[in-house]
Design a protein around this nucleic acid. Sequence first.
DNA 1: ATTCTTGCAAACCCTTTGCAAGCTA
DNA 2: TAGCTTGCAAAGGGTTTGCAAGAAT
Lengths: 145, 145
Amino acid sequence: MSEQVEERDGRPASGRRRAGRQRAAVQELLGAGSSFRSAQEIYADLRERGNPIGLATVYRALQAMVEDGEVDVLRSSDDAEAVYRRCSRGHHHHLVCRRCGRTVEVEDQAVERWAGAVAHEHGFTDVAHQVEVFGTCAQCAAPSS
Amino acid sequence: MSEQVEERDGRPASGRRRAGRQRAAVQELLGAGSSFRSAQEIYADLRERGNPIGLATVYRALQAMVEDGEVDVLRSSDDAEAVYRRCSRGHHHHLVCRRCGRTVEVEDQAVERWAGAVAHEHGFTDVAHQVEVFGTCAQCAAPSS
DNA sequence: ATTCTTGCAAACCCTTTGCAAGCTA
DNA sequence: TAGCTTGCAAAGGGTTTGCAAGAAT
């Protein structure tokens, strides 16, 4: 369980994998909204829309997309399932509405510096960090929805 | 993890639940180090030390401790199992060594302000955030030793 | 035809729960 | 004895994998 990360071959961003109609469906569905979606939800969603996809395919598509950096994975602490969201490449953080799930990508050097400073202060190097900000968006906070 | 701490104690930390020798064992083991431990690891650890605890008991103990706010749970994105760590109450973040797992609790108003500002900027209210900083600690980074 | 993708179902893993037995007060 | 804790085994739920069938090149 405490094993170190296995080295995996660098994967050419895209063009290596044949697109596949079903994977495309997953991509499209994720691209549609900007909020979280669990694999199970995506599976159900696609089926309802008349696209009889297999659950395994959904997982495989998501897995591939994560590897390619197309989507982010997040595991809530209280929920058993992982949620995925479309996501631009590069380093950034998210501001998500805890009510409707809408997500805003945030990019700010301030946090980066902060993380670096804190780490350095304690003698840590090779710093990385993970930040998620939650809140209630203006729309959801509106008294009369 | 998020800062929306369930205020107020109200919980006679030790008057409600009868301690139980096994739960005590889990508490002690978690208290020993300041790094992550998965339930499975704790289970294996205790057994190796000659304490034939049951897996279910480990989970129940951890569950109770989480409820009492004695420990934090964290689910890594790439790992299937949740990890637990002893943790002081109140809002703070962690700086953890990706090599040895050592954890330093960090408390800094800067991030809090940053999170608030970013959220406000986008019309979000009732803000909470979750931050984890990873790095390699000085000891682990040392060339020889 | 070859290679990659898809689906189904079984396999896996972590976690939770039912229930009988063991302690503690 | 009453009430809580512990263990084992079985159940649950999400995710992954084996393998045969279906597309695309």
